[in-house]
Nucleic acid binder design. Structure first.
Length: 425
RNA sequence: GGAGGAAUACCCAAGUCUGGUUGAAGGGACCGGUCUUGAAAACCGGGAGGUCGCGAAAGUGGCGCAGGGGUUCGAAUCCCUUUUCCUCCGCCA
């Protein structure tokens, strides 16, 4: 949600931004918002004046009652009743128009950073930099699920029976490898000064609707029957929700946290669940990082954050690249975003393993997260990035450390978490 | 799950029984000063408070006492409801 003052004072900028995102159908929103905003303010003034009058007269009634001037008091009471009748219709209209205004404001995309490449959709995302050589070995790399099966690390038959499609049993060394990666990622972030956090894995509906739109919620979130609770799709939900409606102290900034959680997703969207393997599933585990900082520091943090992910994957001998999200592919709340993609020697292309975003102050404004500054309160900037998601990272690790004899090399950084084990076979 | 108690601003806290000079007192924190080598403590002084309007500004008004409803001319105060916390009981890794 952007600042309404920006629309009031610089609507051309807002329109220009909408065009850059190829959402021309939203252009009329801007003028609709301006007109609605004026109407709401007019009604507010009208209502405020009536309320003021009511407050004044009501306190006069108090004095009259004390002096036992009953008749005079009664006539004033009638006057207030009239005022209340007038107020009722004004308030009703004001509320309706405010709701409309708010829902239109929600649809206006955040102002993107000037560095964001202009493009219509994900086909125009820009590869910024490669890290590590994307090597294709001269032997064939099997499908990740087959590799895992062969070392006894995956059982999807059983998970199909217990839970249906989109779940998995990880077994033995593969399960241990999954935990090892998460632990390594966690410790890496702790060493970077991030506070480790295990958040609630379920959140209430008011928090959910604060962090995502209704459509997103429907497509992603599992609801607990009979309770006002949803399983989180990412710990970002709990972690940003943590600060909802709070006023932060300026000297506590930046807030840098790394959180672990299982993630639950319906994956109702376009791709659905892949039948085999663990690429797209209903449940995975993720180490996440979030930052709340002063506005002027957010771009520095953004650049630090995605590099952390790159380094973690490089340390596991996985080639990656940074793919910058173009304007048209950028979610409406985001100012700038990039994916970290890992190399798949089997498919000979990169695939997404993480996503880093700065949301400017839009998320904070939407959730009422503020900072008490010297010259009044302001909205902090919020950022989030995947440190490591176990399923995608497993695929990347297994494919890139696969040897011709069917074994998997355990990267050195993970060995302490694997009891010193060097090879999985 | 049961029985009680509680929720007031950045923090602590008065007010709730008995609705109306409450425009939410008073502290702490904060800022300035005295004292001090410097600090702390003590003392003296200060004006803001959350949010949305109007106004060039000085100002000025609305809302706001956990959230949502209601009663009333008028609600922090009365009623209903949801949530959270505390004490005790029960259950439990």
């Amino acid at each position: 949600m952007i600042d309404i003052n920006l629309i009031r004072n610089n609507k051309e900028l807002v329109k220009e931004n909408i065009k850059k995102k190829f959402q021309d159908n939203k252009l009329p929103l801007v003028d609709e918002i301006i007109s609605l905003d004026e109407k709401v303010r007019t009604l507010k003034i009208e209502g405020d004046n009536l309320r003021q009058e009511r407050n004044t007269i009501s306190s006069e009634i108090g004095f009259l009652m004390r002096e036992k001037k009953i008749d005079e008091a009664n006539s004033k009471k009638n006057h207030v009743i009239e005022i209340n009748n007038k107020l009722e219709s004004i308030e009703k209209e004001e509320n309706e128009l405010s709701e409309q205004l708010k829902s239109k404001m929600m649809r206006v995309p955040n102002i993107i950073d000037s560095s964001v490449p202009i493009g219509k959709d994900d086909s125009e995302n820009v590869e910024v930099e490669k890290f590590g050589e994307p090597i294709v070995p001269d032997y064939e790399i099997p499908y990740h699920a087959d590799i895992m099966l062969k070392v006894g690390g995956l059982d999807k038959d059983s998970s199909g029976r217990t839970s249906g499609n989109g779940f998995y049993y990880l077994m033995g060394d593969i399960a241990r490898l999954s935990t090892a990666m998460l632990s390594y990622a966690r410790d890496y972030m702790i060493n970077k000064g991030f506070i480790y956090c295990i958040p609630p894995f379920m959140i209430r509906s008011d928090v959910v609707s604060g962090v995502m739109s209704f459509e997103e919620m429907d497509a992603m979130m599992y609801k607990i029957e009979g309770e006002d609770l949803y399983l989180i799709g990412t710990s970002e939900h709990s972690m940003i929700g943590k600060f909802k409606g709070q006023i932060l102290k300026e000297n506590n900034l930046p807030i840098t946290m790394t959180s672990y959680s299982p993630c639950f997703r319906k994956e109702v969207g376009a791709h659905g669940i892949e039948e085999r393997g663990i690429y797209r599933v209903h449940q995975f585990e993720k180490q996440e990082m979030i930052v709340l900082c002063k506005p002027e520091e957010s771009m520095d943090w953004y650049n630090k954050m995605w590099k952390y992910t790159v380094e973690i994957f490089r340390n596991m001998n996985i080639p990656v690249r940074q793919l910058e999200c173009c304007s048209g592919d950028l979610a409406d709340l985001k100012v700038k975003s990039c994916d970290i993609e890992a190399w798949s020697p089997r498919q000979q292309k990169y695939f997404e393993v993480g996503s880093c975003s700065t949301l400017g102050d839009a998320q904070a404004r939407r959730l009422g997260i503020r900072v008490k500054g010297e010259n009044g309160n302001y909205y902090p900037h919020t950022l989030n990035n995947t440190v490591l998601a176990n399923t995608r990272a497993l695929i990347a690790l297994i494919e890139n450390n696969y040897q011709e004899d069917g074994s998997i090399i355990v990267p050195e950084v993970l060995r302490p978490y694997m009891g010193g084990k060097e090879i999985i076979k």
